[in-house]
Amino acid sequence: MTRSPGDPGPLRWARYTLGFRLPEENRDWVRHDLTDAGWRGRILVRHLALMIPICAVLALLPASWGIRVLLVALVLGSSTFTVLISANELRRARLRQHRLIPPR
């Protein structure tokens, strides 16, 4: 897979996923990430990159396996639903964070 110009690389991508602002040199990549086709899917991938480790820790809590499965399903399902219904607002906030003009 080829890297696009301004691609932040794995470490910066992780920081971007956590909500930090990328440097100016990655501005075109951020614009592409948040405005080109498939931007909702990329928001969902970033969300899952954050939630899967959290769900793995929750799955290790001391409880019966049924409770752990239900807890992970509840946390992952509800957080994913929340991200999906607020994707437009999340995108606008991230664009403003990087000093880009959000689409109407």
Rank of each mutant, 00 (worst) to 15 (best):
H47I: 05
A49L: 08
A49C: 09
R31S: 11
R21G: 06
M1E: 10
G38T: 04
A37L: 13
M1H: 14
L70D: 05
I54V: 14
R96P: 15
R21Y: 08
N88Q: 14
G9Q: 09
G41L: 15
A49E: 05
L18E: 09
R40E: 06
L48P: 04
L60Q: 07
T17S: 04
W29N: 00
L100S: 08
R3K: 13
D36F: 01
G9W: 04
I85C: 15
A37E: 09
R46V: 12
T35H: 03
L95T: 13
E25K: 01
P62C: 01
A87P: 08
D36K: 01
L58S: 04
L100G: 12
Q97K: 04
R68G: 07
R46E: 03
R94L: 14
L95E: 12
I101Q: 09
D36A: 12
L70M: 07
R99C: 08
L44G: 01
A59K: 07
F20D: 15
V72P: 02
V75R: 03
L48D: 00
E24Y: 08
R40F: 08
N26W: 05
P10Q: 12
A14H: 10
N26I: 05
L100R: 02
T2W: 13
L84V: 15
A56M: 04
V72W: 05
W65Y: 09
T80M: 03
R15D: 11
R27A: 06
L48N: 07
L58D: 13
D28Q: 06
P10M: 01
I67V: 15
R3Y: 01
P8W: 11
F20M: 11
P10K: 04
L60S: 12
L58A: 07
P10D: 14
M51C: 04
T35A: 03
V83G: 02
V72D: 01
A63K: 07
F20E: 14
G66R: 00
Y16E: 14
V83S: 05
H98W: 10
R31I: 13
P23Q: 01
T2M: 09
L90N: 14
L84C: 14
R99P: 15
I43E: 00
T80G: 09
H98T: 12
P23R: 04
G9S: 08
F81R: 10
R42K: 02
V69E: 05
L70R: 13
P53S: 06
S4N: 06
R3N: 10
H98D: 10
W39K: 04
I43V: 06
A49Y: 03
D36G: 02
R40Y: 10
T17N: 12
T82Q: 14
N26F: 01
T82N: 15
V45Q: 10
R92H: 10
F20C: 02
I101A: 02
R31K: 14
L11Q: 15
P102Y: 01
H47W: 08
D36H: 00
R31N: 03
G6W: 02
A59G: 09
R94I: 11
R104M: 12
L61D: 05
L44M: 06
R46S: 05
T80Y: 05
A73Q: 02
P10L: 10
L58R: 02
L74C: 08
R27F: 02
S86H: 15
T2Y: 10
I54H: 13
L100E: 09
P8M: 13
R91G: 11
W65H: 07
P23D: 13
V30W: 00
